[in-house]
Amino acid sequence: MRVLSKKNIITLLLIVAVFAVVQVLISVKIINSFYEITLATICINIILAVSLNLVTGFTGQFSLGHAGFMSIGAYVCALISMNTDSTLGFIFGILAGAVAAAIVGVIIGIPTLRLKGDYLAIATLGMAEIIRVLFLNMEITNGAAGLSGIPRNTNWTWLFIFLMATIILINNFIRSSHGRACISIREDEIAAESMGVNTTKYKVMAFALGAFFAGIAGGLYASYFYFIKPNVFGFMKSVDVLVIVVLGGLGSISGSVIAAILLAVLTTFLQQFTEIRMIIYALLLVAIMLFRPQGLLGTKEITDMFKSNKNTEKIE
């Protein structure tokens, strides 16, 4: 099993260490319940941003419908765990929601992904609105009032497990031949086709994979905040995620992680200036984009900065 290389084991130990530190901080109440909500928001936003980055940053398909996939995951997970309130029901709910979102992703992706750029953005926006309106009018989802009293099975442990699974799996995908095929579509679609890359297949694959993880984020959201309604998953939610992706850098997973943390910390910090909060937030975004138009990390990863230039292509 070459996956158990020295470097991967060290990475795993680091991940466990981060988990343990935060867990300790929670149990000694340095992270109180107010900050715990921020922590949950950060985790969910990272999952959303990294999965959207796969679609928009790596495959180059501009999507404004990510909240739509999130809502599918949220409703499916909520309905399942309301009927079977147990940890098993919760995990089954999350996975079922993710699979449902991925299936919808394939169904929507096949017709819309032949569009490019702005046209694709409008099409995905429209599809997210359709999903929202469907939830608004269905009986089982309780319409505009939404679902409340969803059992709260999510805690820091589950959030962290799903967060790490998302980052590791998407990172593995990007660093495989299939991931390179997706990146080649972003770089030059005509050349990619001529080099034998089935562009439609890989666009739909990236879209479905992105939808899958957005569904997981939705399930975690429903389970953590125990109340969901269609308006939570509107256009603005998709834009929020897109802001994180663009700010962190299109094509950088660690960029999305950093941007999600940064924006959440910023929002929490700005809560003391209630009136001018959104103005400062917007001004900061404008300033960052002016000075770093490629995003905080561009297409680089944070790990690239520790490597020497000579052996960057080693696969771990």
Binding site: R2, V3, L169, N172, S176, S177, R180, A181, M195, V197
Partner: peptide, 21 residues
């Protein structure tokens, strides 16, 4: 060069996700 070799790659997506041998 590796992208041009993709059509002859001998593993499927799950192998890529879970890093099989």
């Amino acid at each position: 060069i590796r992208i041009a070799m993709h059509k002859n790659i001998g593993y499927k997506m799950p192998s890529a996700l879970f890093r099989s041998n």
